[in-house]
């Protein structure tokens, strides 16, 4: 899926301008890092892409569709194609690990046996197989992070927006997650990852969009964190 931001501005309330006249394009199948200090506007960009936020100004295109003016009834469909790993995980605390991941498939109307199979596979991928029947309160922050990651990829989205998917993870586990994201990207999924992880950004040699105070200050083909 082709993504384009054209002169997008997002103002929260009256004053906080989280994004100012931002324009960029992401080709289908690209892997992009979104970096910048806290409050730069990374999360804002990702939330605009799933229509969790509506831009104050400007056009956001997904292929040819302007999602700034998307019909309400079409929002669920958008979010199935464009999945997001949320910075605060957004797991359901009254459902088990397995059930949390299964949601992404249930909403697609997949048959139960396929759901069970895929949930097992993806939990193996994020190394949570032994926690499948536990509830989130029993888990560490890093384990919650991995549930969030697993849920976002299990449905096979066209675009994956990962907001700090390695936050709370030790370096080894972080690299495991990166490996998964790269794998998915190779299979054709566009990946946009917002991160503060300098090591990962610097060693991956992928496109890096650097932001500061709601503006893009640098956009490099195989960039570095700065």
């Amino acid at each position: 899926m082709f993504i384009s931001f054209d002169q997008v501005t997002k103002t929260y309330g009256d004053k906080t301008q989280a994004l100012t006249d931002t324009s960029f394009k992401v080709e289908s199948g690209e892997f992009v890092f979104l970096v910048g200090p806290s409050g730069a506007g990374k999360t804002t960009i990702l939330r605009l892409l799933i229509h969790d936020l509506v831009p104050t100004n400007g056009t956001i295109l997904l292929d040819k569709l302007n999602i700034a003016t998307l019909l309400k009834a079409k929002i669920p469909e958008l979010r199935r194609q464009v999945a997001m790993v949320f910075q605060d995980f957004k797991v359901l605390f009254d459902r088990t690990v397995g059930e949390n991941v299964a949601i992404a498939l249930e909403i697609l109307g997949k048959p139960p046996n396929e759901i069970t199979k895929k949930v097992k596979e993806v939990l193996q991928l994020v190394d949570l197989t032994d926690k499948i029947n536990q509830f989130p309160v029993q888990l560490s922050a890093g384990e919650l992070q991995r549930i969030a990651n697993a849920r976002s990829i299990v449905g096979g989205p066209k675009v994956l927006l990962a907001d700090e998917p390695t936050g709370n993870l030790d370096p080894t586990t972080s690299w495991e997650i990166l490996k998964i994201l790269r794998e998915i990207n190779k299979l054709g999924t566009t990946v946009i990852m917002a991160t503060h992880n300098v090591d990962i950004v610097n060693s991956m040699r992928k496109r890096v969009i650097s932001m500061k105070k709601g503006k893009i200050i640098k956009d490099e083909k195989s960039g570095k964190y700065r």
């Binding site: 929002i75 669920p76 949320f86 797991v91 359901l92 909403i107």
Partner: peptide, 12 residues
């Protein structure tokens, strides 16, 4: 919970 379900694309 409802908000989260909406965010991951659950239909009404």
């Amino acid at each position: 919970e409802i908000e989260i379900l909406q965010l991951v694309g659950a239909a009404n």
